[in-house]
Design a binder for these strands. Structure first.
Length: 746
DNA sequence: TTCTCTAGAATTTTT
DNA sequence: TTCTAGAGAA
């Protein structure tokens, strides 16, 4: 669809007609209305697949091309970096290279950009660190312990969630304390307050701070706000239904008296309430801007009538919504296919079979997506697809930048940019092991606290810490020396800095020394990180950033930008088109995407809707919206399946099919039962070919499904744990688990 | 101080 | 099932 659009909008065609709005030729009347209403508040109620991205793109192009607005006066907020990139590209196709100076980003990225300039006013370093969920959980945990509270009664995760919720609602710790009495509540307020103090001391912000601190910055410094108001005259917010209170407050601040806001959203697709998103924002928008022009887009250009009717029928079960019925003129298409599986292997086998069938019909693997409720479902699906030889790509599950080894390296880099970042310093002070154990850390910590200096500063003055054993003191000196050397490498930029950690510090060696299957994977990830950094450098070459051109920046500043990009990416940002593989991801990640063929698997009570959401009516409605989002991702074919039994978290469960299945009118669904289930199930369960430890020996030639021919170098362990190291020549040496690897002896 | 082992816990969705 | 924190031994 996107390709078609770009073709239709050749820049030449635009220039040919300077008076009219040739831009709008392929918008329908409502879309045109939304795109043309540039002054004042506009709320675009955009149903799934109704072309809202197109509206936004054309609207921005219209502002720049026809109304003479400067690109740097236009801001567009999207939900993911990927969406931002796509939008930039599309607008770029209409207006040319000037698009580079336009602000298109996520809320978080935009806030970081503002804060890098302005945060020093609030006592943060300009090079402040961004803590992800893990870092912030660590900080909360230590805060709880330091207050002598029991983590049993104050579970860090829950406390963190409470703090996060408060921040999303712009409640700082002082108002949090005031809000409510009660012993427990007071303690939580204490934790919040200590946590926040620690963050400030470390010049660190968590994800929620990025928003909240920006809002309070604008509150405290009206002249700063004014600067940005003058700069960003036209605001666009995509996925408005999933904004939280802090984000809405920010939008209102920026819009100021000019009030040029275009909010685009669909209440039926609100799926991030659990993360603080607040549908009230849509209602409040109408209240706060009573004169807002409201445009409803209800023609769907994506899905067949069958798919739409089914989705409409499901979402109709939610109460309190503005009745809205999407329609489409793309024809009825095929019925929805339903498959009742015996267990999750059977279900995955169905997907694999169907994928093969669809391929014969002319669909590419990259046209297909498998959507599920929880990441845990991906494992079996992946195994089975691999065995069937269906190429696939899992998005999410274990996030790359959250892996331990990656975070270790990043921690080294972070302490270079921000020496106050105690969490990062403590994380790596003894990695690889260099003899700085918890005792030493505790002693240094006490000194740091007494002197009111950072942990790293305390390490630098370790000769003043008399409690330190001679050996520990030596180890500390060793660490400081390593950091010094790393600092030199970092002057050359991010890639050199990463290599510095891996090579100079010997982190890679340390990981590899433990030569297990797991360690091998880690080492591979680390190498991937190096190429990630190199890629980042290449991509940034010639780019303009707020602080100046990439070419003029010093290595440290470049490193900062790299770290920032790494912290704010989501896995969906990595999704590439044309990879020739079936995409697997959670329903949440699928938001904003579309596929010719969609499989929705695991449609069972307890899984979808999820167990934890079944009791609360509001949460149940959110699950239903999630279902609606999933269904409306499909353009031509929709397959839904459920399984009578399923292993979940190590124990078997047996389930009823989801109520959402019941809500789909039966005449739209065709049961897929005519398959030889037993045969498939067997083949789905047993690997077609694997070898056992007894069958192979050193020197044997074997063939692997993906890596081809290789020679066995060693065999260790036995039974299920038998591993072999195999040299695949060009594909390198691999360590494989024999019970799993698709191998054949030659 | 470090490594290993075990028990125990936690498993919804994520910028 | 998978991961993590904590205890205990070298």
């Amino acid at each position: 669809m996107m390709a078609v659009m770009v073709q239709l909008m050749e820049p030449d065609a635009l220039g040919a007609d300077p008076d009219g709005f040739p831009l709008f030729d392929d918008l329908n009347p409502r879309q045109r209305e939304a795109a043309a209403a540039t002054e004042g508040p506009v709320l675009v109620v955009a149903g799934a697949g109704s072309g809202k991205t197109r509206v936004l793109t054309y609207r921005v192009a219209h502002l720049i091309r026809n109304l003479g607005v400067s690109p740097w006066e236009v801001m567009a907020i999207t939900f993911t970096n990927k969406a931002a990139g796509e939008m930039k590209e599309r607008v770029g196709g209409l207006v040319g290279g000037v698009v580079r100076s336009m602000w298109v980003s996520t809320f978080h990225s935009a806030c970081v950009r503002i804060l890098r300039r302005e945060a020093p006013r609030l006592g943060y370093r300009s090079a402040f660190t961004i803590y992800d969920a893990q870092d912030s959980l660590r900080a909360v945990t230590t805060a709880i312990k330091d207050l002598d509270l029991d983590v049993k009664y104050y579970p860090p995760r829950r406390i963190r969630a409470a703090i996060s919720k408060a921040k999303n609602e712009l409640v700082d710790y002082e108002s949090f304390r005031r809000r409510d009495e009660g012993f427990r509540r007071r303690n939580v307020a204490e934790i919040y307050s200590l946590y926040q103090q620690r963050l400030l001391d470390a010049s660190a912000m968590d994800f929620d701070d990025l928003l909240m601190v920006t809002v309070s910055l604008f509150d405290a410094f009206p002249e700063v706000l004014e600067y940005y108001q003058d700069r960003l005259r036209y605001l666009h917010v995509d996925e408005f239904q999933d904004t939280n209170r802090a984000q809405y407050a920010l939008v209102r601040q920026l819009a100021g008296r000019r009030r040029n806001i275009c909010a685009v959203g669909d209440a039926d697709q609100a799926i991030y309430r659990f993360r603080g998103a607040d549908i009230r924002n849509i209602r409040d928008f109408r209240k706060d801007y009573p004169d807002a022009r409201i445009v409803v887009l209800d023609q769907n250009y994506r899905s067949t009538e069958t798919i739409l009717s089914a989705a409409n029928a499901v979402i109709a079960n939610n109460g309190g919504r503005d009745p809205k019925r999407l329609w489409s003129d793309l024809g009825r298409g095929r019925p929805i296919t339903r498959f009742n599986a015996e267990d999750e292997h059977d279900e995955a086998g169905f997907v694999a079979d169907a994928a093969a069938g669809l391929e014969l019909e002319g669909f590419a693997h990259s046209d297909m997506a498998v959507l599920y409720r929880v990441n845990a479902q991906s494992r079996v699906m992946e195994d089975v697809l691999t065995r069937y030889g269906v190429p696939h790509n899992v998005i999410g599950s274990v996030r790359f930048y959250e892996r331990r080894e990656i975070k270790d390296v990043l921690a080294y880099l972070r302490l270079l940019c921000n020496p106050d970042d105690d969490i990062s310093v403590k994380r790596v002070v003894n990695l690889p092991r260099r003899g700085i154990g918890s005792t030493t850390v505790g002693r240094v910590d006490r000194f740091a606290e007494a002197q009111r200096i950072s942990f790293l500063a305390a390490l630098n003055r370790s000769d003043e810490i008399h409690t330190l054993a001679a050996r520990s003191a030596g180890a500390v000196r060793g660490f400081l020396e390593v950091v010094g050397r790393l600092r030199e490498r970092a002057a050359e930029g991010p890639a050199a800095a990463v290599k510095g950690v891996l090579e100079d510090i010997g982190y890679l060696d340390w990981v590899e020394r433990e030569s297990t299957l797991e360690a091998l994977g880690r080492a591979e990830n680390l190498r991937e990180l190096v190429s990630g950094a190199e890629e980042f450098e290449q991509r940034s070459e010639g780019e303009y950033f707020d602080g100046g051109d990439w070419g003029e920046m010093d290595g440290l500043r470049r490193l900062e930008l790299f770290l920032e990009s790494v912290t704010l990416v989501s896995d969906i940002d990595e999704l590439k088109d044309g990879s020739g593989a079936v995409t697997m991801m959670t329903l949440h990640s699928a938001k904003g995407l579309e596929f010719p063929v969609v499989f929705m698997v695991g449609m069972e009570e307890g899984l979808f809707p999820h167990q934890l959401s079944m009791t609360d009516p509001e949460q149940l409605e959110e699950e239903r919206r999630l279902c609606y989002v999933g269904m409306t991702r499909a353009r031509q074919r929709l397959h839904i399946s459920w399984s009578r039994t399923r292993m979940l978290y190590g124990s078997p469960t047996s389930n009823l099919y989801s109520r959402f299945l019941k809500e789909i009118p039966v005449d739209l669904v065709e049961l897929n039962g005519g398959r030889k289930r037993t045969r498939r199930r067997e083949s789905a369960r047993s690997a077609p070919r694997t070898l056992s430890g007894e069958e192979v020996g050193v020197g044997d030639r074997v063939e692997h499904d993906t890596w081809g021919e290789g020679e066995v170098l060693s065999v260790t362990g036995d039974g299920d744990r038998a591993e072999a190291v195999i040299d695949f020549g060009a594909d390198g040496k691999r360590r494989v688990l024999l019970t799993w690897a698709p191998l054949e002896k030659l």
